[in-house]
Structure formats: C-alpha cells, structure tokens
Design a binder for these strands. Structure first.
Lengths: 115, 115
DNA sequence: CAAATAGTTGAATAACTGTTCAAGTATTCA
DNA sequence: TGAATACTTGAACAGTTATTCAACTATTTG
C-alpha cells in the first residue's frame, strides 16, 4: 500500500502519465478552489455580484446575512482571487475577478439541472 | 436586514430576476456538488477512473489509501451520481458516470494553471 | 464446509469550517 | 473633536467531514 516509486507492471511506461492525475500540489489547489464554491451562502454572495459591483452592506441585504459573516466570506473569496475589491470612502465595493466564476457556477447549475 | 418581499427601488422590476440567483434548494444542490470535488483525495479517486474502470483494490493502490477510506469515498461519489458501479464476482468495478466529471475537473485545472 | 478474498458499513475521533459576538480600524460628518 | 457609518478581525462555539478501526456481508476456492 506504499509504493510511490516502481512502475506498474500492467502497462508500458509511456502510457502511464498520459491521463495521469496532476501532482499533489495541483490537486490540492483544485480542491481548494472547489471548497470556495462548496457553500450555498458563498455562491449567493457571488451571485450578488453577477450584475454589478456591490458594497458590503448591499451584499448583506441581498443575501440576508450579517455584515460580519459576509465580510468573512468576502475575505475568503478575495484570498482565492475570485473577487476583487475597490475602496471608495468608507465603502468597499466588491466585484467578480473574472468570468471564470460565472462559468464554473454555470456548469454546476447545468449539471444539477440535467438528468 | 430582513425584507424578502418588497421590490428594490433602484431598478425596474423586470430587470431584477434576469441574473438573479437560483432558489435556495438549487443553490444547496450546487454547493453539494462542489463539496464532492472539494477534497484532493477524492479528485485523485476520480482521476484513477479517467482512463478506464477500476476495482476498489486497484483504486487503493493508485491513490495509496486504505480500502475502507476509498470505499467510503466511493459511496459518496456514487450518491452524487458521479461514478457508477458494476459487480463481477467479488470485485466491484467503478467508472465515471459521464463526461461531466472530466469537464468540471478540467475547468478547475485550467483555472489554477492560469494567471 | 472452512478459509481466503473483496468490499461495505457504523462508530469514534480528530481536524476543519461557518457564524456569531465583541472589539477593533478607517473614513466622514457635524 | 466626538459621533456615526462601514467595514474588518480574532476568538469561540457548534456543526460537519475524513480517516481509522473493527465488525460485517458476499463470493470464490480448496
């Protein structure tokens, strides 16, 4: 159950890596990305920004959560570089970082709507 | 902070729902789907089936996890209908349920490889 | 039938996550 | 400057999740 090295004896070596999984670090990053989307309130926070940038209070109203909870989630989203933030006076406007967010969410929506 | 009904006074009503978030249940299902992908060992288990169907022991070897741990994860993946299972004697062969799995994983991979 | 193989399952535990609460910073306004 | 607004942050708590362990079922082989 522990044999990291040593090639499989079932298949020629040149075939092994073709569809192989990415390395551990990449897998970890992929999982991290999915984790961000793995919470319905966080998806709602992202949806709040689909049309236009929003400040924290506006997001709070839209998703019906406390300022603190939203702020915590926004920090997470910012760390994952899924949203970016612009300051104007004492307000902080958040917006989607790129179209990837919409695409990924759209795919999940499609998937659950199918079959 | 609690005003579920009552239209926004910032925008004509017919624009409100266009990009609106799906209902709570759908959001929840979307989050559930992402949760399944939100674990690097589970992604590795899925990758193990990219080329061909595999029985549990083969998956264990490939991902270097205990039979029990893999079996638990496979149950989860089966419940989410991301994999399906075929029995042959005392062996249980698992395979990806459809191409959606590869597409979703591929998207995450692209995203983390960019920028 | 008994032993071995292949996998499943439930309970327990340890680690992680989301929300709240309380306290903090930063900016504007009077 | 003092009060109000708009957040941010850290700690704590409750709920969730992944792995392990032990016990179990099902199938095959001798």
């Amino acid at each position: 159950m522990k044999q990291k090295s040593g090639k499989s004896n079932l298949m020629p070596a040149e075939h092994i890596a073709v569809f192989g999984a990415p390395d551990e670090e990449k897998l970890f990053e992929m999982a991290e990305l999915f984790k961000v989307f793995a919470d319905s309130t966080r998806i709602r926070v992202l949806y709040a920004m689909f049309e236009q940038e929003m400040n924290v209070s506006q997001i709070c109203e839209k998703v019906e959560m406390s300022i603190s909870a939203v702020s915590h989630q926004l920090r997470l989203l910012k760390q994952s570089r899924l949203v970016k933030c612009r300051r104007e006076g004492r307000k902080a406007y958040y917006m989607l970082a790129d179209d990837h967010v919409k695409t990924i969410i759209g795919m999940a929506k499609e998937h659950i709507e199918e079959d």
